Every structure is written in structure tokens, then in C-alpha cells.
Computed example of a mutant assay.
Amino acid sequence: MEARHLTKHFPVHQLRPSRVKQVVHAVEDVSLALPEATVTAVVGESGSGKSTLARLLTQLITPTSGELLLDGLPVGTGSKARREYTRLVHLVLQDPFSSLNAVHSVRYHLERPLKLHGHAGNRDELDGKVRQLLERVALSPADRFIDKFPHELSGGQRQRVAIARGLAVEPRVLLADEPVSMLDVSIRLGVLNLLDELRERERLAILYVTHDIASARYLADTAVVMYAGQVVESGPATQITDSPAHPYTQLLLSAAPDPARAEPPVLRGRGSPPSLVNPPSGCRFHPRCPFAMAVCKESAPPALPVADEQVAACWLHTTERTAAQSKPLATAAADAIGTGS
């Protein structure tokens, strides 16, 4: 799957309509690719546009502009094309208790997509497929879970049922919207390992939406960092966490828990995310950035290459704005601020 220049603006409902129509700039010109058998993590704090992006990719909401491609071809808009798209692309929501109907059993939740997409067969075949789905997500023996209701399962078991429901129609893309954020720490690793196994065994392209950059490093091949609706940095996950190039990525990493850290973290950048109704001019991170320069307020930075396959939208990485490319980011920023450039 590939997304090109996706943008989503939500209209603001105003009590007193004025000539100026206000919109929420939820997602702004985002492009990304989800290759087969890989995990791409979208990282950012609350309100950065991660979940909106996931819903755009599932076509639950219509983009203001931009396009989606599957196998290099634009996704169709007809009813038949949309039905096929919903079979190939599945969304796993954050809260497994609310995404499963409390009055129906596990059997019902897994049988329904099979029936809707014509994979049911006779009763014996249907029952066999449901049991296979439970085995595929490590809910075994299947007899122990198949007739239970959501309230009878743990959070991790409910999330596995939600993932099994997505696998029922043999999708090619799995979009996991913070699938472990509402689970106990002790069982998060099991769900992450399940996603990793599905990537290898099912050859799925997985989008992993999270605010936990440490789990993104553990699971993902590629990381995409979002701030205020825009992508500020992207590249190999281990490379981004080892050598973050954007000040916002540095802020996320400094705030992440680290058992090996001897001293309290030093947070480079304070404050809260901006209003997406009236976002800041230029770089949207500049009001919080300790390295902000005059150009940051005036114009938005382009995506600049900073290393092999790693890009960052930051003016600090232009040769015109830094004394030398070999200098560390903090040194270059200090020089730029000191000269007033």
C-alpha cells in the first residue's frame, strides 16, 4: 500500500457562522509506503494525527486531498472496489472491549466476516475456519475460547480476537491503532510478538500506530514521526532511535522511560502541541523548539536527507544554515542561534 500527499481538514462547527470557514488541519500532506512483510511505525504524541491517518488508510473517512494506491494502482471508488479494499485492508482498534460486541460470542465475531465475504462454506467448514483463526493468534485450545463472550476474556485475549477477526478474510494490510496501549505492561510483549509473527508468517504489511517510541524500535522496520499533523522525520526505526535528527524526535526519546538512565532526563523543548485550527506558521514545532531560528517561523522546512534512508523536515540540516554538516545537531543549532541567523 502507498499513500501520496494525504490531507484531511475537518470543518469546525461554529455557533456564529462567519465569512471565514475554520477547519482542523488534522493531517497535512503525508506520504508513506507499507511494503509487504514489513512493520511501519507511526509515532507521535496525542493529537499528532496518527489515528486520523490510520482511518484515512482504511477509507473510514474521506481525505480532503491525496490518493491511495494498492500494488501501484489507485484504489477504486465503486462499491465493488470498496468491498474488495475492505477485505484486503483491516483496522485493529485501540480498545478491544469497545471494538467487540459485548452481546456476541467469539464465534459470532469470527464467523461474521467469513460470511460477509463469501468464505463461509458449510457449517463444518465454517467451524473449522474459526478454530484455525483462534490457533493462528495463539488462543488455544480453541474450544476454551470459541463460545466465550468479550467480558470473559482478558484484555490481551480480546485484542487477539480482534486481530483474528481481521485475519479471517486473508488481508494484505493490517493497520494496528495503538493495539497495546490499553493492555497491562505484562501482556503487551505477547501482542507485539504476535504482530511480528504475522508479519513473517502471513507476509502482512503492518502499520503500527503508537506513542511509545521504544516499542516502535522493538517491532518496526521503519519509523515515521508525526507532529501536529505532519511528518517531521522518517527512516529505519533503529537508526531514528539511535541518531534522531529532528528536535521533536529527540524530545520523544528523552521523555521515554530508560531503566539504564542514571539521571533524570533533560527535555529539550517544553510546552504543548499547537492548535490545529490555527497552526503556527513555518515549522509547526518552532514554538517549542530550543533551536528555533528566524527561518523556522517564516517557512516550513522541506524533507531533507540526513543519513542513508533517513530524512528530517528541519532547517538545521541545510548547508546554508549550519556551519558544517559534520557538527552535532546541538552544536550547529547553538551556532545558528548565536549568530541570529
Rank of each mutant, 00 (worst) to 15 (best):
E2I: 12
A3E: 01
H5Q: 12
K8M: 13
F10R: 03
V12E: 04
R16W: 15
S18N: 13
Q22R: 15
V27T: 00
D29L: 05
S31A: 07
A33I: 05
L34C: 10
A37F: 00
T40V: 15
V42R: 02
V42L: 10
V43R: 02
E45C: 11
G47P: 01
K50R: 12
S51N: 01
L53E: 10
A54W: 10
L56G: 02
T58K: 01
T58L: 04
Q59S: 14
E67L: 06
L70K: 05
L70T: 05
L70S: 11
D71V: 03
G72N: 04
L73R: 15
G76E: 12
G76K: 09
T77E: 15
S79K: 15
L88C: 11
V92N: 11
Q94C: 04
P96R: 01
S99Y: 06
N101L: 08
A102Y: 07
R107D: 11
R107M: 08
R107G: 05
Y108T: 05
Y108D: 11
L116F: 11
H117T: 05
G121Q: 06
R123C: 01
G128F: 04
G128A: 15
V130S: 02
Q132A: 14
Q132K: 13
F145W: 08
K148Y: 12
P150K: 06
H151K: 08
H151N: 11
G155D: 00
G155A: 06
R158P: 06
V161E: 05
R165N: 02
R165T: 01
G166P: 08
G166K: 00
A168L: 04
E178T: 02
P179N: 00
D184W: 05
D184H: 00
S186M: 09
R188S: 00
L189E: 13
G190Y: 07
N193Y: 11
N193L: 13
L194C: 07
L195M: 13
L198N: 11
E200I: 15
R201N: 13
R201F: 09
I206T: 09
L207M: 14
L207A: 12
Y208M: 11
Y208E: 01
V209P: 06
A220M: 06
T222Y: 09
V224G: 03
V225Y: 03
M226S: 01
Q230W: 01
V232T: 09
A237R: 00
I240F: 03
P244M: 07
P247W: 04
T249P: 04
Q250D: 12
L251G: 15
A255V: 10
A256F: 04
D258C: 11
A262G: 00
E263C: 08
V266K: 13
R268D: 13
G269S: 01
G271H: 05
P274F: 09
S275M: 12
V277A: 09
N278M: 02
P279I: 05
P280Y: 08
C289A: 10
P290M: 12
F291K: 13
V295N: 01
A300W: 02
P302E: 07
A303H: 14
V306T: 14
V306M: 04
A312H: 07
A312Y: 03
C314D: 05
T318V: 11
E320Q: 14
R321Y: 15
A324Y: 00
A324C: 00
L329Q: 12
L329D: 04
T331C: 07
A334K: 11
I337C: 11
G338C: 11
T339V: 12
